[in-house]
Simulated scan of single mutants.
Amino acid sequence: MSDAAAPVKVDDIAPDAVRVSGVLTFANAARALDTIGAAVARDGRQVIDLSGVTRSDSAGLACLLAVLAGAAERGRSLTVRNMPEGMHLLASVCEVEALLA
């Protein structure tokens, strides 16, 4: 399994937060969506900490946006912290920064 296809790791770092680690790319975005979505669905999760994400592409960004949208549909608001610079730049280019606020 290549580095890009490796599963994303999601850890509880606080009662209200999860930390995402690893690569978040097209190769693993579908699995990452399920993993991150399940982690933030647990009671009280309000923060997604991306400090452990080492690389991301547009599919990784789309995955994050889908998790946020799913939470919003269930009436929950999530905050994204420590977004990697590359992902932040991609969000800016794609003009979706407001969706991550």
Rank of each mutant, 00 (worst) to 15 (best):
C63Q: 12
T35E: 08
A14T: 02
V23R: 06
L65R: 10
E85D: 07
V18M: 04
G60W: 03
R74A: 13
V53F: 03
V53D: 08
A69V: 06
D12M: 00
T35S: 10
V23Y: 00
M83I: 03
D43V: 11
D34M: 13
D43K: 12
I36L: 03
N28F: 06
A38D: 11
C94H: 04
V67I: 14
A30S: 11
A72Y: 00
A30D: 13
G22V: 07
V93Y: 07
A38H: 09
D57E: 05
T54G: 14
R45W: 01
R42G: 15
L24T: 03
G60Q: 07
K9N: 13
V67Q: 06
M87R: 02
I13E: 10
H88W: 09
V10T: 05
T79W: 00
G52F: 00
E73R: 15
A27Q: 13
F26Q: 09
A38S: 12
C63L: 08
R74V: 00
D57T: 08
M83Y: 00
D12E: 12
A59E: 05
D11I: 14
L78M: 03
A4Q: 10
T54D: 15
S77R: 13
A101S: 13
V47W: 05
V47G: 06
M1P: 13
A62M: 12
A14L: 02
L99Y: 10
E85P: 00
A59I: 01
V96W: 12
P7H: 12
A59V: 05
A69N: 15
D43Y: 11
A4K: 09
D34H: 13
A91C: 08
V8L: 09
S58P: 05
A14M: 03
D3G: 11
D12I: 00
R74N: 12
V18R: 09
A98C: 10
